[in-house]
Amino acid sequence: MQPLIQIENLWKIYQTGEIELAALKGVSLSISGGEFVAIMGPSGSGKSTMMHILGCLDRPTRGRYLLDGVDVGGLGPNDRARIRNHKIGFVFQGFNLLHRTTAIENVELPILYDGLSGRERAAKAGEALERVGLGDRRYHYPNQLSGGQQQRVAIARALVMRPSLILADEPTGNLDTRTSVEIMALFQELNRDGITVLVVTHEPDIARYAQRIINFRDGTIRSDQPISHHADAREVLSREQLESSKETEEEAR
């Protein structure tokens, strides 16, 4: 089967005046559809640049990037916008929701640029919000939602166009531990439904929910390992719940 993402000898060189800075130095990588991959690495390792290129926000200087068999490295800005709209869903550390815009309108945003009618748009967006467990928060504004809920809205926005790939850039960076696990549980659920998930993180605790961890350092891949026994976020959550209820029982005694 053809891989979802195929990267061959990818370079990204930033030119600032006389100085050339290579953020990616000949990376080759292949990710199949349905994988859950964590990309790790310290800052400056090239993992953010990698994200931007994978997300069609940026173009590589050299090398090939095939997404779903299409060479997207050479596409113009309008075609890249179309790919972002149809095939990729973004989740950011800072949620990046539009203020003073309701949850459902935030989720509708990608559909708006695909040109669907109002009713279809509302139906699809509502469905996506149900899926992330916020069906009853449609008309809430971002500042009326908790951080976890805001990130769920962002995830609903990412999946509303039924993309083949969700790219999450430090999605739990602004969340507490428990909410982070909840968000990872949601990603795992989406992944089970067949969506490929790529999470960029520097927290090993988060990376352990992935099936494969790719480590970046100095613009190259340092290691690329599958995890045979990855953690199940839902299990973690129910175990915690059990423990906390035990604690309260003990306290009660």
């Binding site: 800005p77 309008n78 916008a81 929701l97 539009l98 926005r157």
Partner: peptide, 14 residues
């Protein structure tokens, strides 16, 4: 906001 709109698929002309 412009960045967000572009990320979710807005073209320059949108």
């Amino acid at each position: 906001e412009i960045g967000i709109r572009m990320a979710v698929g807005a073209r320059g002309r949108d």
